[in-house]
């Protein structure tokens, strides 16, 4: 069995930041493995530990900088990685359809039985690529999975989809499938020192559009970002100021006044 995990390196903005053009200034951004993808990687690695002959391959669309994040996934137990990038991809404003085309080409190349992706990316939060990909490649799918059990013959999975308001939907999904993974599915491991050492010798294959049988049209997008701004603050909170003990004193007064503290 082969599992393909999509892994995105996402940017997180510092508490204090400035917008430059249509994005946050590069100096205010820190890059890390997307939190949802961390759970997807863990799910894939656990399956490879449970069953014999499971290969876990990660796929990333991202620049060379992303290799640090990819190494982290390799250190956690991913067997090898694919990184899709070239000048045309770099120049594009990738929308869901473009990412779908790129990952579909990777799927064609790798022929996985199961694709795991995070529900969404922490930075742009479209939350759409996994299901779009499933539809494109003709796999079955389930979105927002927070519990996963596989049949031992790996023909299907019993999943829980986390709906709103503390309700979970119990769904059976046939393989091959794409599952989009919600946080909390498992406990993502930390990379061990041994894992980090091993990751250094694992393969990160680079693919450009031509290597995937695509051209620049594949990353053309009719959606473009035209503006970014900080939302106006709507706060009309009464701020309790002073040193910590003064703040605590005022807060205690508020709580007593509201009559919620039993003394």
């Amino acid at each position: 069995m082969k599992i393909l995990v999509t892994v995105k390196e996402v940017a997180e903005a510092a508490d204090d930041f400035e917008i430059e053009g249509t994005d946050i200034g590069e100096q205010y951004l820190e890059y890390d493995l997307n939190e949802w993808d961390d759970y997807a990687v863990e799910a894939a690695v656990q399956l490879s530990e449970t069953y014999d002959d499971v290969e876990v391959v990660s796929a990333t669309i991202g620049p060379e900088r992303a290799e640090e994040t990819i190494r982290m996934a390799l250190a956690k137990g991913v067997d090898r990685s694919i990184r899709v990038w070239d000048d045309d991809v770099a120049a594009a404003d990738l929308d869901v359809a473009a990412k779908t085309r790129l990952f579909a080409a990777v799927v064609e190349e790798e022929d996985p039985d199961l694709v795991l992706s995070g529900v969404q990316a922490a930075d742009d939060g479209f939350g759409a690529t996994g299901v779009s990909l499933a539809d494109e490649i003709g796999f079955d799918w389930a979105a927002v999975v927070n519990d996963l059990e596989t049949e031992d013959d790996l023909s299907m999975a019993h999943v829980h989809r986390e709906l709103e308001g503390g309700i979970e939907e119990l769904t059976d999904v046939d393989f091959p499938a794409v599952l989009t993974i919600q946080t909390g599915l498992n406990e993502p491991r930390y990379a061990s020192l041994r894992g980090i050492r091993q990751a250094q010798s694992k393969e990160i294959a680079e693919f450009g559009l031509a290597d995937l049988g695509l051209d620049a049209d594949a990353v053309a997008s009719p959606i473009s970002r035209t503006g970014m701004y900080e939302p106006e603050t709507e706060s009309d909170a009464t701020y309790l100021d002073g040193a910590a003990d003064e703040q605590a004193g005022q807060l205690a007064d508020v709580l007593r006044e509201k009559g919620v503290v039993s003394e």
Partner: peptide
Amino acid sequence: SVNGLDYAPAVANRLDLPLVAD
């Protein structure tokens, strides 16, 4: 919604529509 996440991207993909999410 969580169910929207489970079908809207498929609608956009099979109709070849640009998708703006959320």
